[in-house]
Nucleic acid binder design. Structure first.
Lengths: 168, 168
DNA sequence: AGATTATAGTTAGGTTGCTAATTAAGTCAA
DNA sequence: TTGACTTAATTAGCAACCTAACTATAATCT
């Protein structure tokens, strides 16, 4: 996401602002800081998951399946919810099937369709990963009290509404 | 980064929290919200850059070169600052050289070393992209006053300090 | 000097995302 | 009932990241 490690300091930002008067220095700083911390969180999460033989893409698939009452879904529905293309989902499911965490089953109703089921191994994997993830996340966020969390939430909503400035 | 589109609602979180008592629901919500907004920002930025024929990786290389007084650097230094491996930088530089935005020049001092220079085309590309980027970012963040920006900054620092909870 | 070690850059091969094209199956309207 | 459209999943090929291994050169240490 934001690979850049060498974030601009105030001096660099001012140098750029001198050439490009549209620059809003505190907006740029806030933006880069947000991307930097989010990226580091995501990388840390991946590192944590990879100790269990998973990565975010495949982990989310297992979670989405576990959310379903019947512990099953279809590649299309999973792709939609996971926010990846169906092509990407095919690849993720290939890996999960190879590891025995999910199973593909033909749908007798609609012969185009495949039913994806969380296997006992898959559930077991989640029962191993989720407590680790949840307790680390609890610790990570421990320094934020409820007011901080609410403020963060409000600010993120404001930024989110602004994202359409990048459209078109 | 966070591909997941179907974020868990309160009910789903509670269902998971019942099975995994380590779950801190407001921590999870804040975490996912942060990743969601940051990812959407990053995707929006990429979309904006791609209208100029760039993507984040290549764009940051141009910016890093522009920060240098002599408008030049080396692949190693750029890789370090951009937060990618030297192998990845080789690929990014290949693309930028192909498009004429940077030039590779041999260093007569150290024959292992290559000097990367921002070309006139590269500078021109930045002069076209940066005003667009800066004005969109200004608009995106316009709803946040200075107090919001400071609060965001403080909260991000707290989260950042907590990231080591995912280590080891 | 000669051997070892470190550094710069690239190449090779893997992963996970993408888009576009393809194959197969279901739907619907004239 | 057939032609056009839609939907499900996959395959193929591209981009940008990774690690590991390699080549060439420079620096360092007996």
């Amino acid at each position: 996401m934001l690979q850049l490690r060498d974030l601009p300091n105030r001096e660099t930002l001012e140098k750029f602002a001198a050439r490009y008067p549209q620059a809003d220095i505190s907006a740029i700083s806030a933006f880069l800081h947000l991307l930097r911390v989010a990226t580091d969180l995501s990388v840390a999460l991946d590192a944590c998951l990879s100790r269990h033989g998973l990565l975010q893409g495949r982990w989310w698939v297992l979670i989405l399946l576990m959310r379903e009452d019947a512990l099953q879904s279809t590649p299309s529905a999973l792709a939609e919810k996971a926010g990846v293309t169906r092509a990407t989902m095919t690849g993720l499911l290939d890996g999960l099937e190879r590891d025995g965490l999910i199973a593909r089953e033909l749908d007798p109703q609609d012969r185009r369709s495949v039913s994806i089921r969380l296997t006992a191994s898959g559930q077991q994997k989640l029962d191993e990963v989720m407590p680790d993830y949840y307790s680390r996340l609890r610790t990570c966020m421990a320094a934020l009290d409820e007011r901080d969390r609410q403020q963060l939430n409000d600010i993120l909503n404001l930024i989110n509404a602004g994202i359409r400035a990048f459209d078109q």
